[in-house]
Simulated scan of single mutants.
Amino acid sequence: MREIVLDTETTGFDPESGDRIVEIGAVELMGHMPTGRTYHQYINPERSMPQEAFEVHGLGDEFLADKPKFAEIGQAFLDFVGDAKLVIHNASFDMKFLNAELSWMGLRTLPMDQALDTLLIARKRFPGSPASLDALCRRFGIDNSSRTLHGALLDSEILAEVYLELIGGRQPDFALSSVTVEKHSGTTAVWAPKPRPAPLPSRLTEEERAAHAAFVEKLGDDALWSKS
Rank of each mutant, 00 (worst) to 15 (best):
I4P: 01
E9C: 04
E9I: 02
T10M: 04
T10N: 08
F13Y: 13
P15G: 06
G18E: 06
G18N: 05
A26Y: 00
V27N: 02
E28G: 01
T35S: 07
R37M: 12
T38G: 01
H40F: 13
H40I: 07
Q41P: 07
Y42V: 01
I43R: 05
M49W: 02
Q51I: 11
E52P: 01
F54A: 07
H57V: 11
L59E: 10
F63G: 00
F63S: 03
A65C: 11
P68A: 07
K69W: 08
F70H: 03
I73P: 05
G74P: 04
A76R: 13
D79R: 14
F80W: 11
G82V: 07
G82T: 05
D83E: 15
L86Y: 01
V87R: 00
V87M: 00
F97I: 07
F97Y: 05
L98S: 02
N99Y: 05
S103F: 06
G106F: 11
L107M: 15
T109R: 09
L110P: 02
D113L: 09
D113C: 07
D113Q: 11
Q114R: 00
A115T: 06
L116M: 11
T118P: 02
A122C: 04
A122N: 01
A122W: 00
R123L: 07
P127I: 13
A131W: 04
S132I: 07
D134I: 09
L136E: 01
L136P: 03
C137M: 06
C137V: 08
R138S: 14
R138N: 13
G141C: 09
I142T: 00
I142H: 01
S145T: 13
S145Q: 12
S146A: 15
S146E: 15
T148F: 10
L149W: 13
H150M: 06
D155A: 08
E157H: 14
A160Q: 06
E161Q: 07
V162R: 00
L164K: 10
L166N: 06
G168D: 03
R170C: 05
P172C: 02
S178Y: 14
V179K: 09
T180E: 14
T180L: 12
V181Y: 08
K183I: 10
H184Y: 14
T187P: 04
T188S: 13
T188G: 07
A189M: 07
A192I: 10
K194M: 05
P195Q: 09
P195N: 08
P197H: 05
A198I: 14
P199I: 01
L200I: 06
P201Y: 02
S202E: 11
R203I: 05
T205M: 06
T205D: 09
E207F: 13
A210R: 14
A210Y: 13
A211D: 14
H212N: 09
A214P: 08
F215D: 14
K218W: 10
K218H: 13
S228H: 12
